[in-house]
């Protein structure tokens, strides 16, 4: 599948891996693809994302650490009679801002550490699905190659909780980004 990726799309995938590594995540998710697309300064895709406030820095801040508890967790805990906001508040009073949401530490396995920080991260299920959808989007748009714009279409077609949550925290949604990108791709009538 990768042979049909454009240089830009390949660079995006490489950047996604790097971003996931810097965030100390264990695998590459669709949210890292989105972040990587935003980091490709000067590309039409990054420009579209920037219009929605999806900039590299905003993304990195808004991507939740894998163990962080989000609104969906708060809702689930509420059903058990636990007020996550109250717990978070108390934790922060005692241990400082973001105490409950601190990212996990680097891998503790000596093997992983010995392999070095640049150890290749595996693609998670959401990233794989996003890339498969990118191929489908490219075919649907009668494009012979898979470009960065198709990767973004794939990411926004996913309905992945990490992507949806990230975009929501940035004040937008996959649908909004997607339709803006699509209207840019279609030649003006």
């Amino acid at each position: 599948m990768f042979e049909r990726f454009t240089e830009e799309a390949r660079a995006t995938v490489v950047a996604a891996q790097e971003e996931a590594r810097l965030l100390r995540h264990a695998s590459i998710g669709a949210e890292h693809l989105l972040l990587a697309l935003a980091t490709r300064a000067g590309t039409p895709v990054a420009a579209t994302l920037a219009r929605f406030g999806v900039t590299p820095d905003a993304c990195r801040t808004a991507i939740s650490p894998p163990e962080a508890l989000d609104e969906a967790d708060a809702e689930a805990l509420r059903l058990l009679g636990i007020d996550l906001h109250a717990v978070r508040e108390r934790a922060e009073t005692a241990f400082g801002r973001g105490a409950l949401d601190r990212p996990p530490a680097a891998p503790r396995s000596p093997l992983l550490r010995r392999a070095g920080i640049s150890a290749r991260l595996p693609f998670g299920a959401s990233a794989k699905r996003a890339l498969r959808l990118a191929l489908r989007e490219a075919v649907g748009l009668r494009s012979g190659v898979i470009g960065a714009e198709h990767v973004l279409l794939g990411v926004t077609a996913l309905d992945d909780p990490a992507v949806v949550g990230l975009l929501r925290r940035l004040g937008t949604s996959p649908a909004a980004v997607r339709s803006a990108l699509l209207s840019g791709l279609r030649p003006a009538a």
Binding site: L69, A76, L84, A99, L100
Partner: peptide, 15 residues
């Protein structure tokens, strides 16, 4: 809910 609770416990334990 149980999964969320487990993650909350893990974070509190680490803290």
């Amino acid at each position: 809910a149980v999964a969320a609770l487990r993650r909350l416990v893990e974070r509190l334990e680490a803290l």
